[in-house]
Write a protein that binds this DNA or RNA. Structure first.
Lengths: 133, 133
DNA sequence: TGAACATATGAACAATCGCTCATATATTAC
DNA sequence: GTAATATATGAGCGATTGTTCATATGTTCA
């Protein structure tokens, strides 16, 4: 059962007086809702992916491991900026570091992310191509 | 060809002096990079999805059309806050409005989004379950 | 040891965010 | 027309963001 909104009365959710869901349909609907922790975690994941620099970092890592300075070069940002972003990505377990001498090599730590990118691009491309309606 | 970083010299990307990609591998890698517009568009999409309120809105719409006041009730936010967020989601063509009398009913405007959510949740769940390493 | 290099991190700052509140628009009923 | 309802939007404000710059940490080589 979701817990963020369940403090509200469960039966009728109707501040507007319209052809509404009846109590049963409404309750059924509430039960399908994601739990608060799931909502937070999902939003957090998308939030981390929602920045061009981080998208670029993940993109360059998609074809394999790279050290920080190469990432910085390829994405066209300072090494400091990249390092800060890598920390966030590490925190979300999206990338994983491997030290070798002075450099630290980063890899994608979850192949789901590549699938996520592809799925996201599918939406983006539909946007630009279609413009139906 | 990507255009944001291509102003930099294309051959060697090595401020650090390490066992590096050679020129050929580096060039090949550069060519696989997403274009800047694609990067921006993808990041923008994820950014819009990266907020708990918007995740909740999409979640409640996943089981079908709802008017604004019902959405507000189900996600536990003010109608004004929800309306502001719906505007963003509309702008990204993630939801679509349909007016019927005084109410405006919203639907998901792209089934890709549901797939994106599922894919995102797959990452999130792996996090919580595994904690390997 | 000390200098040079690669990366990480803290502080600071402008820019952006998501909310609230007040107000505007649109529709319905009278 | 006016009043009431449903939604949309602009202004404003505290909170968060992503960068830069300075500094700290960790590694290699002499």
């Amino acid at each position: 059962m979701p817990d963020a909104t369940s403090k509200l009365k469960v039966a009728a959710e109707a501040p507007c007086e319209a052809p509404h869901l009846d109590g049963a349909a409404s309750a059924a609907r509430r039960q399908r809702l994601m739990t608060s922790p799931a909502v937070e975690a999902l939003a957090e994941t998308f939030r981390i992916l929602g920045d061009p620099t981080r998208v670029r970092i993940i993109d360059v890592l998609a074809s394999g491991e790279l050290c920080v300075c190469d990432i910085a070069e390829l994405v066209g940002m300072s090494e400091s900026a990249v390092s800060h972003q890598l920390r966030l990505l590490r925190g979300m377990r999206l990338v994983r570091p491997r030290r070798s001498g002075r450099q630290v090599y980063y890899t994608l730590d979850d192949q789901h992310i590549i699938a996520l990118f592809r799925q996201g691009l599918r939406h983006v491309l539909e946007e630009r191509a279609g413009t139906r309606r």
